[in-house]
Design a protein around this nucleic acid. Structure first.
Lengths: 129, 129
DNA sequence: CCCATTCATGCGCATATACGCATATGATGT
DNA sequence: ACATCATATGCGTATATGCGCATGAATGGG
């Protein structure tokens, strides 16, 4: 929101033309917002563990709760968030709700996360000036 | 943390054996925590836009600030977070700091994000029971 | 040396998030 | 109908996060 201050840094001129062709996410704040929300949905250890569990089997809330050692309330609330972003689906059977990953692409993607083990992924190296 | 309540839901028995072979992230809370932190780093629209800009060119803080219309302070703080998770690197030239994406895998991965346009990604379908 | 420029950082505040408690909803059994 | 179980949700609170303000640190020009 802040207006560009009147500094003299003109480095941008170097890449002026390139920057003229801005990518969608750079120009479209709304797009960036939506995208960021989805990363945020994955930005919680408990939710990642829920997804990890669901990548193995379809499970009811009660199972997830017991498996991960978190309260039913917390489990339910996390599942709501994962539902909101279309990451899980569920099926009601009697009074139970069986959750599963929403689609196979999410499943394989999570599988990579599991086995990747800190190498060859999407940005692992630590700072190095 | 909450102890498993003494309900009677025994659905877990169904998948008992499968669940015995838990994936790392499910069992290893620490691992899940680390992984979640990195998603969180991407879970902010401004940081995504910074990465989008850096996927086009190496830029100094001043440029980023002006380009995205955010304060120098905010820019610097976001860059610190991205540095912490090894997503960007920088090079000092005089009083300026030129930032770039840390590695090519992050770059191509971001490129996919840009063009994917809500289809074929990692979990797009909205809730459907 | 003095001062402007560029970037980084400590602090404070407004807002967001995670989770527990209590409770609502809906299904199942007696 | 009533009690019980599985799940969902409103609310309060502790903590985390984003960002502005003020300032520090480093560089370079006069």
């Amino acid at each position: 929101m802040t207006e560009r201050e009147e500094g003299t840094c003109e480095a941008r001129v170097v890449h002026g033309t390139k920057l003229a062709a801005l990518q969608p996410m750079l120009a479209d704040e709304e797009r960036a917002h939506v995208e960021a929300e989805r990363f945020r949905a994955l930005g919680d250890p408990t939710r990642l563990r829920i997804l990890a569990a669901l990548s193995l089997a379809e499970l009811c809330v009660c199972d997830l709760s017991g498996l991960l050692g978190i309260s039913q309330t917390a489990t339910s609330q996390h599942l709501k968030i994962l539902r909101t972003f279309g990451m899980v689906r569920y099926r009601k059977e009697g009074r139970m709700a069986f959750y599963r990953l929403a689609d196979s692409s999410l499943r394989t993607w999570l599988a990579r996360l599991h086995t990747e083990d800190r190498e060859g992924g999407v940005a692992h190296e630590r700072e190095s000036v």
